[in-house]
Amino acid sequence: MTRTVIATENAPALPAPLSQGIRKGPVLQISGQLPFDPATGDVVGTTVAEQTTQVLRNVTAVLKAAGAGLDDVVMLRVYLTDPAHLAEMNEAYAAAVGEPFPARTTVYMQLPPGLLVEIDALAVLDE
């Protein structure tokens, strides 16, 4: 199986040694996306709801570049900086992702200052 790098200008390109996404066979892994505006590089929003919405826009842009969508996602991993943000993140997440929801893991970690959420995705596509 060929390993294909997925890249799009519609999601931020980070100054880190990673690809926005990688597809191998039917498996598509989207790197953790942050709440950056892909056009300006600025952080979008100061609340976890605003940032979650932008992060999921970025995830969706990489999925689209691979010919996929949220309905192909089987797992989303959410990284939050503060457990107190869980309810607010859940509301924004539910609105953006829609039912039926993919499987999900949520963990708490430290992100750079001003960043409240990061999300990565695992999708399975038709070959």
Score class of each variant (00 low, 15 high):
M1A: 13
R3D: 10
V5N: 06
V5P: 01
I6G: 08
A7I: 11
T8L: 13
E9Q: 15
N10C: 13
N10K: 14
P12S: 11
P15I: 15
P15R: 14
A16G: 08
A16T: 09
P17G: 13
L18C: 14
S19V: 09
G21V: 08
R23P: 00
V27T: 08
Q29F: 14
P35N: 05
F36D: 00
P38G: 05
P38F: 11
P38S: 03
D42Y: 05
V43L: 08
V44L: 01
G45I: 00
T47L: 05
T47Y: 02
V48R: 00
A49V: 00
Q51P: 00
T52L: 00
T53I: 10
V55D: 03
L56P: 02
L56V: 04
T60M: 01
A61F: 05
A66V: 09
G67A: 07
A68V: 10
D71E: 10
V73R: 06
V73Y: 12
V73S: 06
V73L: 13
V74C: 12
L76V: 02
A84Q: 13
H85I: 06
A87D: 15
E88Q: 15
M89V: 03
E91Q: 15
A92Y: 05
G98I: 03
G98W: 04
F101V: 10
P102Q: 08
T106N: 01
V107S: 03
Y108D: 07
L111G: 03
L115V: 04
L115T: 03
V117R: 04
E118S: 15
A123I: 02
A123P: 03
V124E: 05
L125E: 04
L125G: 01
